[in-house]
Design a protein around this nucleic acid. Structure first.
Length: 233
RNA sequence: GCUGGCCCUCAU
């Protein structure tokens, strides 16, 4: 069963969902981990609907979901913005007393964010006490994705205030939302913040900055950033 | 052996 599960997982990572299904079918027993591998393989290949079918089928066959199952189930909803399905799985999360788990919460925030249900995402966020960088980033990205830059900035500053460290992904998530035809203030503010928190300005972050400046119509800032990048190397 | 955040067939 371990080997079969590893196979399902591997095919899933290679993008061969059909082969993952075949490997799964060849297994004699399907425990919760085997199902989880099949479900997460489907999610990884953007087959959210199929993942949810497996999610339900597993439970119909009497296998109880665990934390990993629910995380994958929640993320399956994100692929096609299935809000009511997401809420339904959220209810299961509460029943299993997993609603204070930071990984589960991150998945919920991500999914609610993609469903444009920022308030639902924020409610999940507020309940979590031991917030890590990934959780903060998921919430900021949800705000940023729908243009609520000021909210994203508030969270970013609050994050620094409580001593959490934003990483590359945190910054790039917000940066990409700073693109606007009307101004580059947001982008410059984000640039300042990135320097302030000592983020390593590597290839991807510099690329994000330059892209943002170009899209905002400021070749000056883009070139300045590019020159700084050149002097470093 | 299976899980969470930007992007990666939904930035260009």
């Amino acid at each position: 069963v371990f080997v079969g599960t590893a196979l399902v997982n591997m095919y899933g990572r290679f993008g061969c969902l059909e082969d993952a299904g075949i490997a799964f079918d060849k297994m004699l027993d399907h425990d919760v981990v085997a199902w989880n591998a099949l479900i997460s393989a489907s999610v990884r290949n953007k087959e959210g609907v199929r993942a949810l079918q497996y999610f339900r089928q597993m439970q119909e066959e009497g296998v109880l979901p665990n934390k990993v199952t629910l995380v994958s189930g929640v993320n399956a909803c994100a692929t096609h913005s299935a809000f009511s399905e997401g809420k339904h799985i959220h209810a299961q999360v509460v029943i299993l007393d997993l609603d204070s788990d930071v990984v589960v919460a991150t998945a919920l925030i991500h999914t609610y964010g993609r469903c444009r249900r920022i308030n639902n995402a924020k409610s999940v966020f507020d309940v979590i006490l031991n917030r890590d960088t990934v959780l903060w980033t998921a919430m900021m990205a949800a705000y940023a994705h729908y243009g609520q830059i000021s909210e994203a900035f508030k969270l970013f500053d609050e994050m620094l205030f409580v001593g959490a460290l934003p990483d590359k992904i945190s910054c790039i998530s917000i940066l990409s939302a700073c693109v606007s035809k009307t101004g580059i203030d947001d982008g410059r503010q984000m640039h300042t913040r990135m320097i302030f928190c000592g983020l390593d300005l590597d290839e991807s972050t510099l690329n994000g900055l330059i892209t943002m400046y170009v899209k905002c119509g400021s070749m000056d800032d883009a070139l300045k950033t590019f020159e700084i990048a050149s002097t470093r190397n």
